[in-house]
Design a protein around this nucleic acid. Sequence first.
DNA 1: CGAGATGTTCGGCT
DNA 2: AAGCCGAACATCTC
Length: 264
Amino acid sequence: MPELAEVEYYRKVWDGGLRRTITRVALHGEKRLFRGADVARLAEQMPGAKLLGSEARAKQMLFRFSLDLWLGVHLGMTGKLRVEPPDFVPSRHDHLVLFQKRHALVFSDPRMFGRVLFHEGRAAPAWWTALPLAVTAPEFTPDLVQAFLARRARLAVKAALLVQSAFPGVGNWMADEILWRAKIAPAALCGTLTKARAATLWREAREVCAVSLATVAVDFSDPPDDWFYHQRWTATGRCPRDGGPLRTATIGGRTTRWCPRCQR
DNA sequence: CGAGATGTTCGGCT
DNA sequence: AAGCCGAACATCTC
């Protein structure tokens, strides 16, 4: 599930533990989720630290603790955050649990494509501060999008939207939504898009990100009823614009759906 | 039971 | 040499 807006939603779930101290940590440290993290230090240092705040950027989350401790979380394909009672007993897929007096903050991920990072220091870690410019940032301009498309001239535009360094936070369903709104065929090569169409892509990318953050991220509610999103999942889905049948193909290595009539 | 799943990374090929 | 593609990662659901 987790794309931009879902990640922001899950980040806030752990707000239930804000200003509370971690008393105990349970984790499956041998799992690949913890690759690159110093698991021993994490387990040793976290007890006694207080959750002070958090932030989401694109598909990453950063949790800030007292004692200069930081936790990074990426949800991968099937990761979730939740809050359980303090006597919670972790099961197979609950790879990290931060126990507090009144809560247990749980990170679970059956497929384990997610990731946990640990950092000790006064300032946020480099892997966080080096994240690319957000699609919703004022500095994210049509010119930047156009320059990126020019550099990736031979790449299908669908694949381009999934490049996280260019469109951070955009995932498979958001990419299809953006292309449907922009009326661009997902297989169109980036190099063939006119400047005007690149600007449309820019505009719709921002719009889809902004509206998702205003709906999905708030309460996990669905995007607006007239979005392509609702047609995308069902075999009988139809184009919300012209009612025509949709097509499905693998583009950029991912299942892609689009309306062949209005997306060119 | 086989296929596919809302993500990332790596290795190999052009 | 940069850039593109497919496979791999691990598990569950339809």
